[in-house]
Design a binder for these strands. Sequence first.
DNA 1: TGTCACATTAGATATAATCTAAATCGCTCA
DNA 2: TGAGCGATTTAGATTATATCTAATGTGACA
Lengths: 141, 141
Amino acid sequence: MDAETIKRTLDGSGLRCTPQRYAVMAFLMECKRHPTAAEIFESVNRMDPRCSRATTYNNLRDLVQAGLVREVAVEGRAARFDAKGMRHHHFICDRCGNVEDIGWYNVPRPASGSLGKRVLRECELIFRGLCTKCAPRHASG
Amino acid sequence: MDAETIKRTLDGSGLRCTPQRYAVMAFLMECKRHPTAAEIFESVNRMDPRCSRATTYNNLRDLVQAGLVREVAVEGRAARFDAKGMRHHHFICDRCGNVEDIGWYNVPRPASGSLGKRVLRECELIFRGLCTKCAPRHASG
DNA sequence: TGTCACATTAGATATAATCTAAATCGCTCA
DNA sequence: TGAGCGATTTAGATTATATCTAATGTGACA
């Protein structure tokens, strides 16, 4: 994922490509995990101390609003973030709260009657259980 | 939903049926909305000032752990709660954060290969968009 | 009635996220 | 090049949400 691609992605969404915003987006794009805002801040700030906490949160908000990044709320824990690359669903570990990708497959929409006058924008599938790390641990104790 | 049913439900989950716990459970069972913890506390506390904030949160945690209540995390907002009655999916309004029920229908599980060694416990569908209240407001301004 | 585990409490504390007001950046246009 | 100006950034305060603590209460049962 080269710098030019990220710059063009930001430009295409009407977001100026500032060093801080670039750093947040680049980090999310190369990050295999689904980091929390605090993790993103730490990581980006370590690489470039010019990026403050507020800026990290501001940029995450902007990126989510622009549709470039997805925010995943997790019960009782900090939200996780995720650059929208290939479509996928999410698996959330009940034990450690980690969020992982599950390959995308089509989900049947609800009957139009059950939506009423609501405007449907997105439709996502969330799986819950124990992740690979937590499953054996849980089994033994 | 009579008192005896609630008492039996709690007993059946190994939870003592205290007045506070009963009040939280009863409120959730008769509540059509999906209230936040703060709303549950206010409502229950108004009816019976003996139920403190900590107790409300403690009991919500216990009820969720016992599988009687579902917690729904909402991006950027307080979590919502929901007595598990009939199975259903959820619609979350992007604008006001309200959570509403969508009639349940079967969701195809992921291919076992994509789950790896994960232990799958639940599988839920989340719809996002604008609720009935917010849709017209949004269209006009 | 005494005991013990479970429950509850008020208020302090922790955690996550946002707000504020001032400073700075970096386009655009001349 | 440089003035104007809206977008962006900043440190730290503040808010919102939830949990913890240590003392107290409660009820089933011997």
